[in-house]
Write a protein that binds this DNA or RNA. Structure first.
Lengths: 177, 177
DNA sequence: CCGCTCATGTAACTGGTTACATGATTTA
DNA sequence: TAAATCATGTAACCAGTTACATGAGCGG
């Protein structure tokens, strides 16, 4: 029982939500995600799905639409077990930690001459504000749906980005730039 | 002018902060970081430093301690330019986005039978609370130093983790588990 | 003297990305 | 009818990890 990568486990989750589902639709979940760790590239998803099938965690069948060939994947019992094992696993520092690309940049902001620091923070604030807007739009959409958890998950991202934005203003203030 | 990876740019930043610095000390920055995107493995740092040297962004010299051989790296002018170019670059969705390993798990929590959802949230809350404690300890330490930005950066992580923790309690409440 | 940390490295691997190829279907 | 999107895939590449090897110095 080889352990699964984070992406593989996410894909099991997506399958659980959307099954039966085509690889392309799985891809789109990642392509359209506000998170950027995974690109949702075909080169990631198609081989991954076949690999999961080889391990018996997912099953597939041909599902052509009219003339076009198509393939649909679903979770097997073992697949659902795998998903649950993930959710039952202990959570440690890896799960609690986060990486904030803006925060690391701020760590080194004094490498910039003073007059460039204001514009730096402007760029950062704008990026976060725009992200906040995107998430709000997304949450509005989700709120009209019937999937509560989807909405709540969106709100999670919103809270986090807002916290980063507030912190950024605190930093500007503390450094008076 | 090949573009640099995020890790390479971070390493330039670390060099800017600590130069002249040994590869081992650069590693420790990542090894001891609360963030877990990079392991700080020797296999990452040593070849990377040589690569940066090959590109003329960093310079090195022998710096043995008594009997032991050692090597010290510093930024070159081009290296500092590279660091600044990073900080001057526009920030978009990639920089504003975040990945929260707990949030993705929450997305799929209903794949767990109801009675297991409480313990799931317990584990998540504990992991975040512990992380909060670690960050607080770190910030206390930094506060006694003279590096304001280091302290502020620590606070950034604290704000983010606290936001995630608050959100988690909101979710528990909303799902009443 | 044993084990730990300091310190420097290499080799094999792997989990992805980028870029390409192909063709059907929809939309402007 | 041209361009965009749907849909499926492959091949080459690459950044970083894991695991290993080596040896010096230090604390119990």
């Amino acid at each position: 029982m080889e352990r699964l990568s984070e992406l593989e486990q996410c894909v099991l989750g997506v399958l659980w939500l959307l099954q039966p589902v085509t690889p392309y639709r799985v891809r789109k979940v990642f392509l359209e995600s506000r998170s950027t760790i995974w690109s949702g590239s075909a080169g990631a998803i198609y081989p991954l799905l076949r690999k999961l099938e080889g391990r018996g965690l997912v099953g597939s069948r041909d599902a052509p639409t009219g003339d076009r060939p198509g393939r649909e994947y679903s979770l097997t019992g073992a697949g659902k077990d795998g998903l649950r094992r993930w959710l039952r696993a202990p959570m440690g520092q890896a799960e609690a930690s986060d990486y904030d690309p803006i925060r690391v940049r701020v760590r080194f902001v004094e490498a910039l001459p003073p007059r460039e620091r204001g514009p730096f923070f402007d760029r950062a604030e704008r990026a976060l504000t725009e992200q906040l807007g995107r998430i709000e739009a997304m949450c509005d959409e989700y709120e009209r749906g019937d999937d509560v958890v989807q909405f709540l998950t969106g709100r999670g991202g919103w809270h986090t980005v807002r916290a980063r934005l507030h912190w950024l203003r605190e930093v500007r203030d503390a450094l008076s730039v």
